[in-house]
């Protein structure tokens, strides 16, 4: 149950949790679910570290815990509070849950097929997880594409971020910490900036509906 199989199982958990984030009805629930999702991510990183014996990955998991499990959800919840009644955050997505799940399933499948074509010694053992991480990224994209509430689209970005984070860990476990720090800081800053933008949008434009943001066109 330890070693790579564990990593792969945790990978499967990643997919499920991320789907939950996509499907969450309210922003608040999504934030909590995202926190849970990030916890799974930390577990993935830690187990990977245990498997590969890479000390860097442990530090990564530590920073990931600090930023993703704690900081990001906190920021998002804070934003939600700040927005308050300025605008509706809980707009329903464009796609109903059934279709969203189907779409996610298709993405996961396609990613598995795509990854099976990749021939990398580093990734040989963790190929399922690699596919999961890629799929994770696309689930994030899907989240952005199908959500009407731009607040929930932030979660889309976060999921993409998590996906690429896992990929980074899988493909570049030996990369210098500074790289990881750079990526993580970028992510944090991105979330902060997105949150601020959402808040301003609510404040100055009184809407968080992506369908209202179609005034600039070709």
């Amino acid at each position: 149950m330890f070693g790579y199989p564990l990593v792969n199982v945790l990978g499967a958990c990643l997919i499920i949790t991320s789907m939950l984030v996509v499907l969450a009805r309210t922003g608040r629930a999504a934030a909590w679910l995202y926190s849970l999702q990030s916890l799974v991510l930390v577990a993935v990183l830690a187990s990977l570290g245990a498997v590969t014996g890479s000390t860097e990955l442990f530090t990564w998991s530590a920073t990931a815990f600090a930023t993703k499990v704690v900081l990001v959800p906190a920021i998002l919840l804070f934003t939600l509070k700040k927005i308050g009644d300025e605008a509706r955050t809980d707009l329903p997505p464009k796609l109903n849950p059934m279709k969203s799940v189907a779409l996610v399933a298709v993405e996961v499948f396609v990613c598995f097929v795509a990854v099976s074509g990749i021939d990398l010694p580093t990734a040989a053992e963790v190929r399922p997880t690699l596919a999961v991480s890629l799929a994770h990224f696309f689930i994030g994209l899907t989240c952005i594409v199908i959500q009407r509430s731009i607040f929930k689209q932030i979660f889309g970005y976060c999921l993409m971020e998590n996906g690429s984070h896992v990929t980074l860990a899988l493909l570049a476990p030996q990369a210098p910490e500074l790289v990881e720090i750079g990526v993580a800081t970028d992510a944090i800053f991105a979330v902060i900036i997105l949150a601020v933008l959402v808040w301003r949008m609510a404040r100055y434009a009184r809407t968080l509906d992506a369908d209202d943001l179609c005034e600039l066109k070709g």
Binding site: L141, I144, Q153, M160, L197, M201, Y204, A205, L213, L216
Partner: peptide, 18 residues
């Protein structure tokens, strides 16, 4: 901080980060 400017900024950041 006009609606259009914020809309542009949002599109910019989402499309570019994606």
């Amino acid at each position: 901080r006009t609606k259009l400017a914020l809309e542009a900024a949002w599109k910019y950041v989402i499309v570019c980060t994606a």
